[in-house]
Design a protein around this nucleic acid. Structure first.
Lengths: 354, 354
DNA sequence: TTGAAAGCGCTACCAC
DNA sequence: GTGGTAGCGCTTTCAA
């Protein structure tokens, strides 16, 4: 019932606890025969070192914390996959916390993590987050933090992001080139720098094409609110002149599809839609969705790698370690140019499997 | 830089370490004024108890481990959400491990967890798992384990599953009622009881409808192998008489769609498809996919609840604690009966947004 | 090459 | 009510 510990091993082997410990840690000052004997017994008794004891002693937990707004979202689950991958390679464990887009929760979690429970933290901030005192708290304790995707713009800390400005620009440009002139932009929390950058790209593209910026066309989802699902529908009803939608997050692209269905608007003929998304099924939608796809898995891996540089070297890293990865524009039928309508029936038939 | 500890607080307050500890733990034998003084300073200095020290001392880690085959899958990410929810309510932390469908990894993780690092474990087994010695290991250590979704059939331990037999039956029945007579069943690892039960439901429904069971129509995906994506296509090519597909996992339903597109087969006219899936976009696919949807979030919550019963009461639980939740059959266009073809153009136009 | 012993930060037992 | 102290299991000086 009670797990075997060093004492038990030492007794059985007539060795001291210290020797057993060193043998198991493969220290150079222990003879090979002793090492072998110790290892053999440890294996036989299924010895596993007590993690809390060694963490306490070494002041290293071999654990990182990951704090994300939500997990039922392809972007974050892929990022976790990448993070777990790197952590495992470094023999690290991964604690997961969901902020549910709630700054209070994020704060509470970060406070907990400040107590030496983890050697480092990966954070993608909640959309409500405005204050970042909690980051300083970890910094004071010497616990490195790397932000990914949803980051605080100003802070001097390493961030792993994507080219959100360029992506916003390209998405909007793509719609404009496809003939759209009244382009709605659906986004989340203005406070997020990620949203701001996508939006700036949107504005820049409009300007480039000499399309006036219309504030009414930019709608921001209140974080985690249920009404957000109906947001596109409300907008499309109020502004029937909209002929393009640029959704800054996957969920808004999906509710735009639903809104079009409900309102009898044809995609892409009446409204063209492009959205940030990591949906594997984007190409199987009706019609297939044109996406800006972030390299979510790579972001996770990259963020974890940057963190481990800090963790291993045991020092705080700065904004200088930041990385920016490129998102990919994947053109599909939802933004097919109306001038290509002669080809449309074929494409549609294919999409339908007809 | 160094985190504040009890010693520091005790010094500043001219109290003993013991008193400070008890004050912070709100013990009855400490006077209110003292508690207030201690709390005030602790707050001011951002004191957070050292988790490893108290875990070591109390022999309680306030942490559970979650071991799943993969995370980039709606079922598991929703389950995690449910688990995290319950854990948080119990003031517990959640460690995440991905087995990547690899038994060796699963084993290695379970060994690690046997060392008192966690107070309990939630496990959804890798498809390759055949041996379960690692479960006994945790049992010996008194660490409760609850299996969810992908479970070991025989073991006397609590399991949280869905009505897989009934779901398999209903899915197949649904296809049969829609007119299918040559129904392929795409599944994963035969060794999983979950697969076996779905398959038994499939067989039972066939028998009920006096449709002979054809072994060739049952194809099993080799876990995590890249060829699995092309599996439906190979099958549909070899057996052009197939008029229905029952996919036991989401990914196989998706590759069936792709296969149909590639082969020019019309869904649902030529082939009807039903699949287990937690895809939020099922209704937006071309055509909308009929699904068996498992209550993933609830499974996570339920599994965690069962685990916490054991963790709190500090005893192992048995199979008697098992729960079975119901999956839901959501009928959509991918299995629309061919006799309804008069309505089809409308449905399709809607699906297309035309 | 091995052993003895201190101590990581905390809790719990026993005094007073 | 409060303080002293032992000890959770481990690592790591320092001695031998």
């Amino acid at each position: 019932m009670k797990p075997v510990n060093l004492k038990k091993l030492a007794q059985e082997l007539n060795l001291s606890i210290a020797t057993v410990s060193r043998a198991l840690n493969d220290r150079y000052d222990i003879s090979q025969p002793t090492k072998d004997r110790v290892r053999a017994l440890a294996n036989k008794l299924n010895y596993e070192p007590n993690h809390h004891a060694s963490s306490l002693r070494r002041n290293k937990s071999k654990t990182i914390g990951v704090v994300i707004p939500e997990v039922d979202n392809h972007f974050f689950s892929l990022a976790i996959k990448g993070i777990e991958e790197v952590a495992r390679r470094n023999n690290y464990h991964v604690l997961i916390y969901l902020s549910h887009e709630d700054y209070q929760r994020e704060l509470a979690v970060m406070r907990l993590l400040a107590s030496g429970r983890v050697d480092g933290v990966l954070l993608s901030v909640a959309s409500e987050s405005q204050d970042f005192a909690h980051l300083d708290l970890l910094r004071e304790r010497g616990i490195p933090v790397v932000l990914f995707d949803r980051v605080y713009a100003g802070k001097d800390m390493p961030k792993v992001t994507t080219d959100d400005y360029e992506s916003g620009y390209r998405a909007t440009q793509h719609l404009l080139e496809a003939g759209c002139r009244v382009i709605a932009h659906l986004t989340i929390a203005h406070t997020l720098s990620i949203s701001q950058r996508r939006m700036q790209g949107y504005q820049a593209a409009l300007q480039q094409f000499r399309v006036p910026y219309d504030e009414e066309l930019v709608v921001c989802e209140a974080a985690g609110k249920p009404q957000s699902a109906s947001l596109p529908q409300t907008l499309l009803t109020q502004r029937p002149d909209i002929d393009g939608i640029f959704a800054a997050v996957e969920s808004l692209a999906m509710s735009s599809y639903e809104a079009c269905h409900n309102l009898g608007l044809r995609i892409p003929k009446d409204v063209k839609i492009i959205g940030f998304s990591n949906l594997k099924t984007a190409s199987l939608l009706a019609p297939p969705l044109t996406t800006i796809t972030q390299p979510a898995y790579e972001i996770g891996k990259e963020a974890a790698s940057v963190l481990f540089q800090a963790v291993v070297k045991n020092r705080l890293v700065s904004a200088a370690q930041s990385k920016e990865l490129k998102s990919e524009l994947i053109v599909r039928a939802s933004t097919a140019s109306t001038t290509l309508s002669s080809k449309e029936p074929v494409a549609l038939a294919l999409a339908l499997g007809r």
